[in-house]
Nucleic acid binder design. Structure first.
Lengths: 237, 237
DNA sequence: GTCTATAACCGGATAGAC
DNA sequence: GTCTATCCGGTTATAGAC
């Protein structure tokens, strides 16, 4: 008697359609790759009209992005489990990187497309863009957690820069992974296995007296660079 | 009496048309950017038909590439002049990097497009692809010349890897430059000025006894990685 | 206001005649 | 070598249904 003619199941009329479209897209991307998939094909398989598909997804690209976003959250989850069990930095770092490429595996085929647009400074998808700041923040947060592990000897100033540096390192690994055509991404795995200990060792060397001044200078510059980035470009000066 | 009815200037019937099209493309890219330029517009301005434009350039992308190739050769020239006058590694490296961003400046606007396709592993434009091996080779050759300068203390094994490492460093600088919106690319210039000395110093540190084993291990791995890349992926093993 | 569909538009790319 | 005619697929405009 309270509620008028409003239908009960208000939950998600279109949300389901949206899901159907995304599902169809994922299937087709898997079957034929990004370029081989057409928006018309996606709409067809989802049983909707072309225009309708565009009602839910502004472009073909955001379809891949939505698809890829899954991998990001999956990674956060898996990484969480790694961090809960591993206590040594080295193991933590290796674990975070390995889970990254593992959760990304289903997307390897289109990672090229993703990376492509990511490299474009105009694109909101660029890892350096304003829009992707949240997920970048999440990734560096992960690195903050990583370096809470045992086995790291470092100075406070270097430590402060480490999350960003490790994020960059991770980007490098991903770039390698994208180009890795070996079965089981064996080559990327080797890369991780070999470079993680090196990275940790190099960081630890940073506290050696001979290297101290160098480290200090480098971190000072990094800090400067990072802080300048936060501030919108100054037309003056 | 020897030559029949054939016109004398046989040199380049179509080569001129080709040039006209490229010229028109460059103008339009400059005026309206990559996306704002259409193949029809290019053909129009060049005074040829659309189909004809495609006869000379397989795609819109290769037009930008041809355009960009100029910058590459220009850079080789400018770098040559730098290497002829500068004797110290640091000055040589800085000079090579500065001329790189300076000769690339006219292309800054589309560098996004270039980099975009370059990041795609499928693309023949990818700096890691077979097709771009020649220009990559030229760039690492340049780095070989750079390290012939004075002021470098290093071991043979590290030295052997340096050209590739410095090429990677240069790629990093370019990535930064692409995203650099500061006037006169001031930020990239600062980046170069600050990091070049650091890089040289780090390399020189590589010969310190404490670091030797680390360097040796790292270079061994790099060599392994590089050599494996030359060999086509082995399906066996 | 939320959803769905049809009919274009636009621009990159190709086929094939001359 | 050059053109015209088309294709193809991403994207948009727009109209109507719920």
């Amino acid at each position: 008697m309270t509620s008028p003619a409003v239908p009960r199941k208000r939950t998600d009329k279109g949300a389901q359609t949206r899901a159907r479209i995304l599902e169809a897209a994922i299937e087709l991307f898997r079957e034929r790759g990004y370029d081989g998939t057409t928006m018309r094909g996606i709409a067809d398989r989802a049983g909707v009209s072309l225009g309708n598909a565009y009602y839910y997804f502004k472009s073909k690209e955001v379809l891949v992005q939505d698809f890829y976003r899954r991998s990001h959250t999956e990674h956060l989850d898996s990484a969480e489990r790694v961090l809960a069990t591993e206590t040594h930095v080295e193991a933590r770092l290796r674990g975070v990187l390995l889970t990254k490429i593992e959760t990304s595996e289903p997307y390897h085929r289109f990672s090229g497309v993703l990376f492509k647009t990511a490299a474009d400074p105009e694109s909101p998808l660029s890892p350096f863009s304003e829009e992707s700041a949240p997920s970048r923040r999440e990734s560096t947060r992960l690195m903050e957690r990583v370096i809470e592990g045992k086995g790291l000897r470092t100075t406070p100033d270097l430590r402060a820069e480490l999350p960003d540096l490790l994020w960059t390192y991770q980007m490098g690994i991903i770039l390698f992974w994208i180009h890795d055509r070996s079965e089981g991404r064996k080559r990327t795995r080797i890369l991780i296995d070999r470079t993680v200990p090196l990275v940790i060792r190099i960081v630890n060397l940073g506290s050696l007296p001979v290297i101290r001044t160098l480290t200090r200078r480098a971190t000072a510059f990094l800090r400067e660079l990072r802080d300048a980035r936060e501030i919108p470009p100054t037309p003056a000066d």
